[in-house]
């Protein structure tokens, strides 16, 4: 079943197309990555899907229904926002108490365990918590709520490497035991790429890539060798990046088994492109093609 489906979904703020004609279908019971540079529209898209802002255009189905002002859908949805604001007098324990009442599947024992693991001082007022401790509150709520649909928007700000790894480990373990749909927006692409089953890359409000991570392994490849050999191989191909060092050259091209075989036959070294590198190539290529469009106008 599809957990989230949108067609032509758009949100414009004046001239800014924060989300622009987005068509996506996210299968349920998977961990999806929502990737994009700052300002790509990730947060706005998640706010649309959780009914926090209203669409300018387009339609969406979340857990089978229109999410806006739909208590049924929203009670099954947990949205952990990057910069969640809390009342000044609140302590973490107050947030957890409210979450316990709000989410039908809340697991208090698990929440207590996570509080301990993330060393969250639950009785200190939130004003006095560090950025990382604030993030830990969100992680505890997001995991212990066990909501059928959980959004994590950059959930690790201020967390150190140890705590981030702990978040990934807990997410995987709990997802395995209690399968649900997770949408994780993140900048730390290399850290999470093995956790994701499917990724959507947004750029300037539009979908730049929508694919299963397994397929992405072959989406692009990097070839290297003598510059003359590399250039002969590149003739007639789309090139994402090319660098030359003396008589040696390295280039990244869109993949596929044919490209790999042709490169090996040409005597070139072939290596795979990580999700992080693919992301950088795609968003850079998109930006420069846009710049060319503007230049020719």
């Amino acid at each position: 079943m599809t957990a989230i489906a949108t067609t032509g979904l758009s949100k414009h703020f004046g001239d800014v197309r924060a989300v622009d004609d987005v068509d996506i279908a996210l299968a349920e019971l998977r961990i999806h990555g929502l990737l994009g540079r700052n300002g790509a529209g990730k947060t706005t898209l998640m706010q649309l899907l959780t009914g926090q802002v209203f669409a300018t255009r387009g339609t969406m189905r979340v857990l089978g229904a229109e999410p806006v002002e739909n208590a049924d859908v929203l009670s099954q949805t947990c949205f952990i926002q990057e910069s969640q604001k809390y009342p000044d007098t609140f302590r973490a324990i107050d947030v957890l108490r409210i979450a316990a009442g709000a989410y039908p599947n809340w697991d208090q024992e698990y929440a207590d365990q996570l509080v301990e693991e993330f060393r969250l001082p639950v009785k200190r007022t939130i004003k006095k918590l560090s950025r990382g401790q604030l993030s830990a509150i969100g992680i505890v709520v997001g995991l212990a709520s066990r909501a059928p649909l959980t959004f994590f928007d950059e959930p690790y700000l201020g967390l150190d490497a140890v705590a981030r790894r702990m978040f990934y480990d807990r997410l995987l373990a709990d997802f395995a035991e209690h399968p649900r749909t997770v949408v994780l927006s993140t900048h730390h692409i290399d850290e999470v790429s093995n956790l994701l089953e499917h990724v959507v890359i947004l750029d300037e409000g539009q979908v730049l890539l929508d694919a299963d991570t397994d397929e992405l392994q072959d989406a692009a490849l990097t070839v290297s060798g003598r510059a003359t050999d590399v250039d002969a191989f590149l003739a007639g191909r789309e090139v994402l990046e090319r660098t030359v060092l003396g008589t040696l050259a390295t280039a990244t091209v869109p993949g596929g088994p044919d490209a790999k075989r042709a490169a090996l036959d040409a005597g070139l070294d072939v290596s795979p492109v990580s999700l992080q590198a693919l992301f950088v190539h795609l968003t850079t290529a998109n930006a420069s093609s846009r710049a060319t469009d503007v230049a020719t106008v």
């Binding site: 995987l172 997802f175 395995a176 956790l195």
Partner: peptide
């Protein structure tokens, strides 16, 4: 099991299952 491998290798359980 799939879940043990996923947790140990820090990969998605679906990938481990595959």
């Amino acid at each position: 099991s799939t879940n043990e491998l996923a947790a140990f290798l820090r990969i998605n359980p679906a990938t481990a299952g595959k």
